[in-house]
Design a protein around this nucleic acid. Structure first.
Length: 561
RNA sequence: GGCCCCAUAGUCAAGCGGCUAAGACGUCGCCCUCUCACGGCGAAGGCGUGGGUUCGAUUCCCGCUGGGGUCACCA
């Protein structure tokens, strides 16, 4: 049976008049400096940004911007059934909070609507049908693709593929044979049959005519995994769905070629379909981009086995991190530590540089999947917060509190200078205090600096003689001078200790605790509890400096004995 | 089940034929110290398994085991 493929192409795509050549001239190759990488983030608007999604995003962003290239955003909205209205906008907003900015693509305008920026658009796949159809027609005309009029129901009866649960229990051997036979059957048809189906108004999908021998292997080099062997594609997979919208595979080939993507960075779940893509690029006459398949982030389930971090898991939604109190920089740094094994080393050597200064290196990427580790994230977050200047910490905390803790926000903004001086405690030196793991820790840490938030949380140590406490307060009030420096201040506290029969010297006290009523540590504890309401707080001298004499004394007076 | 990927401590990881097998997080001790937070010192804990190749394997090859992915008109 011989078919006039050009005639078939005209029959299937009568509306297509453009040719691949006209498209090539409409989207010319980019003129970029040698070595510049063009990468993209290509999400489908089906929900929030997944934490795991941040990995390819950051790799793409770093590679592009580090090389003087282009990082663009393309929206893969080819599945109307799964699309969630507003998801694309939300995706962009979330990423911008993470400092991820796109040079071109479907970008959010000031009106909150998505608009195209750049010369390779449209950047929403649903708007690119005419483009895909040009190449679809070309493939049909070349005898490399064909229409299939089987309905979804018919195929499902054979494949039984629409439910994961069924896949697990089905008979694989028979399934494979049935599929092969079905595929062969669909390949043979006559022009008359096609004409009749079209005349009857029956929809069709366009399938690629696979020429590969599934027994043969293809060797391919992935930039993070090295050489890989995969079977050559032998499957007539779908290029265009019955609504004329392309599948991921087809859109990927056409778009990444036309848009000049040099490096495709995606999750490793795409590895098995790589042979399809390579075959498509070959059929289309396109040069394939370089690929980087990134390992999935996992979590530990109840049984101790690894599971893909999925939608419902804690930490899956990127938006959750803000509400948990992690700032975007912390999350980004954590991702970087997982992405490049030498990142932490670099950070230690360069504590103050922004992470964008880090020389990101593909060779330092690991091919094995890793487990999400809150301990590590916490540590990174704690360091990120501790490295900030007081001003920066103030801004970060205030911005966070604006949406997550109005009460804190009101207090911080009431007197910014005061708030900044609180944040300045133990900050800025070589060994800064690390009081905050997340921004949620801010309020409980500094509440005692505000009279209306102050409460006595802790109790005096067991067995404390309240007469000693009262005597301590009286003596302290009699001698305290805000003009004293820290040493003078502490000498006075020691003097109080001595007068009350407490040890002024800790070493002496430890050597013979029975010789004293207590130690200067106890005296400090009395004062600390009254002034801060707790047994643990930053340096008392500084706290009193910030509170001032009047408020300090008021708290000593108000302390219940 | 087929195909594919992965495999160094609880976690992330250096290592790329010869090392007492780095480092970080976590855990536990000790020190510093007015408490806390820092900081310092130290400890426990690892090359999944069986074959090769080699004078010598964590490192190279194969099998096994384990984990993960994938097999749609979803991406």
């Amino acid at each position: 049976m011989s078919i006039d493929y050009q005639k078939l192409a005209d029959l299937l795509f009568p509306q297509v008049t453009d040719t691949p050549e006209t498209l090539e001239s409409r989207f010319p190759a980019r003129s970029l400096p040698e070595g510049a990488k063009v990468t993209r983030f290509a999400p489908s608007p089906t929900g929030f940004v997944h934490f795991g999604g941040l990995f390819p995003v950051m790799v793409g962003e770093r590679l592009a911007h580090q090389s003087g290239g282009v990082f663009y955003l393309r929206i893969e909205d080819t599945d109307g059934r799964r699309e969630i209205p507003g998801a694309a906008e939300a995706l962009i907003t979330t990423l911008s909070q993470y400092g991820i900015h796109f040079d071109e693509g479907a970008i959010l305008g000031s009106d909150g609507k998505i608009t195209d920026v750049g010369h390779y658009g449209p950047y929403k796949q649903s708007l690119r049908s005419p483009i895909y159809h040009v190449y679809a027609k070309q493939l049909v005309a070349a005898g490399l693709a064909y229409p299939c009029f089987s309905t979804e129901e018919e195929l499902e009866a054979i494949h039984n593929t629409d439910k994961k649960a069924e896949i697990k229990s089905m008979d694989w051997e028979n399934q494979a044979t049935a599929r092969r036979e079905e595929m062969l059957a669909r390949r043979s048809f006559t022009m008359e049959q096609v004409e009749a189906e079209l005349a009857a108004g029956h929809p069709f999908v366009l399938r690629l005519l696979a020429d590969g021998d599934g027994e043969k292997k293809l060797t391919f080099t992935d930039l993070v995994r090295g050489k890989l062997d995969m079977p050559v594609n032998d499957e007539d997979f779908v290029l265009l769905k019955s609504d004329g919208i392309p599948t991921y595979h087809f859109a990927h080939a056409v778009d990444d070629h036309l848009m000049g993507t040099t490096h495709v960075i995606r999750g490793e779940e795409w590895l098995p379909s790589l042979p399809k893509h390579l075959q498509l690029f070959r059929y289309l006459g396109f040069k394939a981009p370089k690929y980087m398949h990134i390992s999935q982030i996992m979590r530990l389930d109840e049984n101790g086995s690894k599971k893909k971090l999925s939608k419902r898991d804690m930490g899956a939604n990127l938006n959750d991190y803000a509400s948990m109190g992690y700032c975007a920089d912390a999350v980004a740094e954590y991702v970087l530590t997982l992405l490049n094994s030498n990142y932490e080393e670099w950070r230690t050597a360069n504590p103050t540089l922004p992470y964008t200064e880090f020389p990101f290196n593909i060779k330092k990427m690991s091919a094995s999947g890793c487990l999400f580790d809150f301990n590590k994230l916490n540590d990174v977050s704690k360091n990120v917060l501790s490295r900030m200047t007081a001003d920066r910490m103030y801004e970060t905390a205030t911005a966070w509190a604006a949406t997550y803790d109005r009460e804190l926000y009101d207090h911080l903004t009431r007197d910014p200078a005061y708030a900044k001086s609180i944040f300045a405690i133990g900050r800025g030196g070589k060994k800064p205090r690390k009081d905050f793991t997340v921004l949620r820790d801010v309020k409980p840490y500094l509440d005692f600096f505000y009279d209306d938030l102050f409460t006595v949380k802790d109790a005096l140590p067991e067995g404390t003689d309240s007469a000693d406490v009262a005597a301590t307060f009286a003596a302290f009030k009699a001698t305290y001078d805000p003009a004293d420096d820290m040493n003078t201040w502490f000498d006075k506290v020691k003097a109080i200790a001595t007068d009350l029969g407490y040890a002024a010297d800790m070493k002496a006290y430890k050597a013979d605790p029975t010789a004293y009523r207590g130690s200067v540590a106890d005296i400090s504890a009395y004062l600390r509890l009254a002034v801060t309401g707790r047994q643990n707080a930053p340096d008392l001298y500084t706290v009193m400096q910030l509170l001032g004499r009047q408020r300090t004394f008021a708290r000593l007076d108000a302390f219940p004995l």
